[in-house]
């Protein structure tokens, strides 16, 4: 680095990166649930179609 990154800006990254990681975790969790629901819906549809 050829300039002072600023201790305050470095320290706050602990919080910013922490928040981002929590967000990423929940996004992953949400995506998993959404894809599970989708899968279930698709398999239900398939069953319905098979019955027909």
């Amino acid at each position: 680095m050829y300039f002072d990154p600023g201790t305050g800006s470095l320290i706050i990254q602990l919080l910013v990166a922490g928040l981002a990681s929590i967000g990423a975790f929940f996004a992953l969790f949400k995506n998993k649930i959404v894809s599970m629901i989708k899968k279930e819906k698709n398999s239900n549809k398939k069953e319905d179609n098979d019955e027909k």
Partner: peptide, 16 residues
């Protein structure tokens, strides 16, 4: 003070 942030967290930060 040494501040430790994992690479994964830095990537999450860029994404956010």
């Amino acid at each position: 003070v040494k501040i430790n942030i994992s690479k994964k967290s830095i990537i999450n930060m860029f994404d956010m």
